[in-house]
Design a protein around this nucleic acid. Structure first.
Lengths: 158, 158
DNA sequence: GTAATTCCTCAAGCGCACTTTAGATCAAGA
DNA sequence: TCTTGATCTAAAGTGCGCTTGAGGAATTAC
C-alpha cells in the first residue's frame, strides 16, 4: 500500500526529491514512515503530485492547491467521486483561462489589423480615454481576474 | 513629448510607483529627467507598461519582456510596424497557450467521464504505464513546454 | 512663503517555490 | 561485512518581482 520511496516518486513525477519534501510541508502529500524513519508513499500520492503539477501550471499557489487537496482522503486512494469533484473545479478554471486568452487575442487581432497601436485614440492602448470607465491601465483588456482571488472572491468573475 | 510624472503613469496603469521604477531597472521604460532630477515619461511609456502587464499575464518574465522591448525605439513613439511585429509574436504565444489548455481540458474531460482517475490503468494518471514513453510524470499532459524556454529553444515547441 | 505632497536614491525586506549544504543515519548489493 | 548510495533533519541560500523604509530634495497648493 505504501511501498514507494521518495526517490521512486521523484523518478515517476519528474520532481526533485527536495521539492516533494517541500510539498509535504504544504500538505500536498502525507507519507508514512518505515522503521528507519524513511518516507513511504502510496500510489495515491503519485496522483496528488501529478494533480498539483497541473494546478500549478494553471497558476494556483501551493496553498490553494493544498486547500483543495484537503477534501481528498489522506491515505486511502481517492475514489471516482473525489476526483470528479476536484477535476470539475479545475476544468472550470481552464475554461475561464481559455475565455480570457481568447478575448485578449481578439483585441490584439483588432489592433494588428487596424494599426491603431500607435494612435492616441485607440481605446485599448489608451485606457485614460474612452476605456477609462473600465478602470486604470490595460486591466480591462486583461480581464482583471487575478487567479489568487477568483476562488475567494467570485464576485470579480463577472 | 515627455510630460508625464511617475505618479501619472501609476494612476493610468494601475501599477505602483515602486513597480514602475523597478521596471526601469529592467529596461522596460526609459524616462528622461527634468531639471530637478525627476522622471518624465512620454505616452510611448504608457503603452510599454501596458504591453509588459499583458505579457506578464501570459507568463513571461521581465527579462524576456525587456528583450522584446529592446527592438522598439526607446524614445520615439513606436510605429505601426513596430507594434505589429511584437503583437504578432505575443499573439502566437496566446495561440499556443490556448491550444495547450484545450488539450488539457479534453484530457480532464475524458477522465471525468470515465472515472478512470482512480484506476491504475489510466494512461494520464499513471505515467509509468503506457504513457511512460512520453517522459516522467504528468509532463506529457502538461505539454512540457516551459514558457521561459520557448523563446530561446523553439525546438521544444513541436 | 510655507506646508503638504510627490519624488529622489539606496538598502533592506518579503512571499513564493524551491535548492543547497552539512552532518548523520539507513538500506541494499558484492 | 563492508561499502555505496539513498535518505534523514535543519538551516541557510536563490531568483523573481516587487514593497518598505530612511533620509532628503523637488514640486505643487494655498
Amino acid at each position: 500500500m505504501a511501498d514507494l520511496t521518495i526517490g521512486d516518486l521523484a523518478d515517476r513525477t519528474g520532481l526533485a526529491v527536495s521539492a516533494i519534501r517541500f510539498y509535504e510541508t504544504h500538505g500536498i502529500v502525507h507519507p508514512l514512515r518505515n522503521a528507519g524513519g524513511h518516507r513511504r508513499y502510496g500510489r495515491a500520492d503519485l496522483r496528488r503530485l501529478s494533480f498539483a503539477m497541473i494546478a500549478q501550471k494553471l497558476g494556483f499557489s501551493l496553498a490553494e492547491i493544498a486547500a483543495h487537496m484537503r477534501h481528498l482522503p489522506a491515505h486511502r486512494a481517492p475514489d471516482r467521486a473525489d476526483w470528479q469533484r476536484i477535476s470539475r473545479y479545475f476544468r472550470d478554471q481552464i475554461d475561464d483561462r481559455i475565455a480570457a486568452l481568447t478575448a485578449l487575442r481578439e483585441n490584439l487581432d483588432g489592433c494588428i489589423g487596424c494599426g491603431c497601436l500607435s494612435l492616441d485614440r485607440c481605446a485599448i492602448w489608451n485606457p485614460d480615454d474612452r476605456a477609462a470607465a473600465h478602470g486604470p491601465g490595460p486591466r480591462h483588456l486583461l480581464g482583471d481576474k487575478p487567479v489568487s482571488d477568483s476562488a475567494s472572491n467570485p464576485a470579480q468573475l463577472s
